[in-house]
Design a protein around this nucleic acid. Structure first.
Lengths: 121, 121
DNA sequence: AACTATGCATAACATTCTTATGTATGTTTG
DNA sequence: CAAACATACATAAGAATGTTATGCATAGTT
């Protein structure tokens, strides 16, 4: 057996950290890319994070559906050969929401950075 | 009615962001402070974050119990007058775990900062 | 006397993931 | 050319981890 199985050579973040950030990540990517489909989003995140963040399909697709039913995304279904592909893009309210969520997360991270760095002794 | 009800004058982060960071926050505070009790932790976090992060008791106490049963924390019960107070401090493995979780979160935040800032167009 | 703060605890519920499973097409490789 | 891998969607059961509500009790403030 290999002892490297759970090593940090490629550190994948413990899943709980991703929680709560997924919607923001999706909205951010869509605000930069006009339109994307689900599988593309998973690959883009992997690529941009050097495999550190891997979005599972079980998490992504329900999230996309939720964002859509909240009116933040619009969808266009296309066929590549016989295979379906669903392109998502931000609606007007989605663009606004996107900015809000990005700001909030950026602010939160500053706060967390402060919390982690300070010595409170 | 007041329109300021949900305003951002004092922006409290949407709760989903806190998820997954609570254990790390607790471990960090304990690594800086030798020993602390639950209520003190909630107040310290409020103070350090300018009320932006408010840890609820319903989240904190179960978390402290979980960290304790994982052997990361040890407890000393004291009485202030007639009122009980439970002081928590890091065990040896808790100190190690604390460092790991802090590193992971710091790394995660760098990754997220990159993800949020970059333009992928 | 009433209200607020300190200090613990737990239970019902909600949210949001993971893991597993399902279906189907397209591409690469031994 | 068969098997394996990659692309592409979807959903359901279960786990994890919060919120909200409630409960109890003591201490301080108005």
């Amino acid at each position: 057996m290999f002892a490297f199985y759970n090593s940090n050579i490629t550190m994948i973040y413990s899943s709980e950290l991703i929680k709560g950030t997924l919607k923001t990540i999706v909205l951010k990517l869509l605000s930069d890319n006009n339109r994307m489909y689900g599988y593309e989003i998973t690959q883009k995140v992997k690529e941009l994070t050097g495999d550190k963040i891997q979005i599972t399909e079980g998490a992504l697709y329900p999230t996309l559906h939720a964002l859509e039913s909240d009116g933040l995304l619009s969808v266009e279904t296309e066929f590549i050969g016989k295979r379906v592909r669903k392109y998502y893009s931000l609606s007007t309210s989605g663009k606004q929401k996107s900015q809000e969520k990005i700001s909030e997360l950026a602010d939160f991270m500053n706060t967390m950075k402060y919390l982690l760095d300070i010595k409170t002794a």
